[in-house]
């Protein structure tokens, strides 16, 4: 039962990744990443209860729902409204290509990662593979998108991969470390958004094309 739920969550995560890869609108992407954040926050609940204190798990879940599912999407939405970029994005690679890439990566990570000789450690190999797929997809989004907001979302996907992995494979961190990690992420996003605001003020757009002058 638990296991099936875990697989379901992993599948949903992968689907949301594919969705992010295929969507062209910022608003949709933000919704997608919020959905992924909520999904992730459920993961701690599936941890074997003997290894961690239940209170810790609840605190962690609540905090991550708050940060990943509410605060960060909200903040991103605000900045998107602020800089008024709902237009079509022009990625370096087309959406359909991206989706195909995402599928390939997901399949590949199930194939390769599942074969690694330490998979027995994770609560579910499915989960771990999804994490690595997210990692690569996150980087892919960063690399192929022109819009800075999309890059931030890519970064969030990438960070989520770490979170999934943390939950699924190694759950022995003390609470304060986990919270520190979440807060760090929050602070990172905040400062990125501040940067986006600055960039927008300065260039009147948030395309990465104007950020290619330092190149030698």
């Amino acid at each position: 039962m638990q296991n099936n739920l875990l697989i379901l969550i992993s599948l949903l995560i992968i689907l949301s990744n594919i969705f992010l890869l295929g969507s062209s609108r910022t608003g949709a992407m933000i919704r997608g990443i919020a959905f992924q954040g909520v999904l992730l926050s459920l993961l701690p609940l599936f941890l074997p209860s003997e290894s961690v204190r239940i209170l810790d798990i609840i605190i962690l879940a609540v905090l991550s729902i708050a940060i990943k599912g509410v605060i960060i999407p909200h903040y991103l939405r605000k900045v998107t409204r602020n800089i008024r970029t709902k237009k079509e994005l022009h990625p370096y690679l087309g959406y359909s290509v991206s989706v195909i890439f995402g599928l390939l990566v997901s399949y590949g990570s199930f194939y390769f990662i599942g074969k690694l000789p330490f998979m027995y450690l994770s609560i579910s190999p499915f989960n771990t593979s999804a994490a690595f797929a997210s990692m690569i997809i996150g980087m892919f989004i960063i690399a192929t998108r022109r819009n800075i907001i999309a890059q931030i979302i890519g970064y969030l996907v990438f960070e989520n991969a770490g979170f999934i992995l943390g939950i699924s494979i190694a759950s022995s961190q003390p609470l304060f470390i986990e919270i520190g990690i979440l807060l760090d992420l929050l602070a990172g996003i905040v400062i990125m958004v501040v940067a986006v605001n600055h960039i927008h003020l300065y260039f009147d757009n948030v395309n990465t094309d104007s950020l290619e002058r330092l190149n030698k």
Partner: peptide
């Protein structure tokens, strides 16, 4: 410097 910071952050 904005560009630099953006790259640094990312």
């Amino acid at each position: 410097s904005l560009e630099a910071m953006w790259k640094y952050l990312l």
